[in-house]
Measured scan of single mutants.
Amino acid sequence: MDETGKELVLALYDYQEKSPREVTMKKGDILTLLNSTNKDWWKVEVKITVNGKTYERQGAVPAAYVKKL
């Protein structure tokens, strides 16, 4: 869990989004888990830093590609 009490997951593999509802992640990324009720796809929040600014993006990733921490 992070400092706000939200559950975290670890990306076990790289994943490139294939639709606007998904998010890209790299192996080793730590993501915030938002919903894991679907056994195949979990909704997560990814933090992306671009030019020193951090953005948050929500989307789905394959459940088999992440592990709860």
Rank of each mutant, 00 (worst) to 15 (best):
E17Q: 13
V50W: 08
R21N: 15
W42G: 00
D2R: 13
P20M: 08
S36K: 08
L33M: 02
Y13L: 09
V46H: 07
M25Y: 02
D40Q: 11
S19Y: 04
P20A: 10
T49N: 10
L31M: 12
D29W: 12
A64P: 06
A63N: 02
V61W: 03
L10H: 03
K27W: 04
T32E: 06
I48A: 06
A64G: 10
E22C: 07
T24R: 06
K39Y: 07
E3M: 14
K27M: 07
D40R: 12
Y65N: 04
A11Y: 04
S19W: 05
L33P: 00
T32L: 14
K18P: 03
R57A: 06
D29R: 03
E56F: 15
V66H: 02
K67Y: 08
Q16W: 11
V50P: 00
D2F: 13
V44T: 00
L8Y: 15
T54H: 08
L33S: 00
Y15I: 00
M25F: 11
D2Q: 14
V9Q: 01
V23G: 00
A64F: 09
E3P: 13
V50G: 05
W42A: 03
I30G: 00
K18E: 07
Y13R: 15
I30Q: 03
V44S: 00
A11D: 01
Q58R: 11
W41K: 01
L34M: 06
Q58S: 11
K39C: 12
P62E: 03
K68T: 06
N35I: 07
E45H: 07
W41F: 06
V23H: 03
K67P: 02
N35K: 07
N35W: 05
A60L: 15
V61G: 01
K53D: 08
S36H: 07
T24F: 04
E56S: 15
P62S: 03
T49K: 10
G28V: 03
R21W: 15
V61F: 01
Q16L: 11
Y15C: 06
V66Q: 01
V44G: 00
G52I: 03
K43F: 15
G5Q: 13
M25V: 10
V9T: 01
T54N: 07
A63H: 03
I48N: 06
G5E: 13
Y65S: 08
Q16K: 11
E22Q: 10
E17L: 07
L34T: 04
K27N: 02
E22R: 05
K43Y: 15
K27H: 05
K53N: 11
L8T: 07
K18S: 09
T54R: 06
Q16M: 12
I30V: 11
N38R: 08
V9N: 01
D2A: 14
K67W: 08
L69A: 03
K68Q: 07
K26G: 03
E17T: 07
G28N: 05
K26N: 06
K43W: 15
T37P: 03
N38Q: 09
E7Y: 11
T24M: 04
T32R: 14
K39R: 11
V66A: 00
K6N: 10
L10V: 15
K43V: 15
V46G: 04
A64T: 10
G28T: 02
D29Y: 06
V23K: 01
E56P: 13
L10Q: 09
K68G: 05
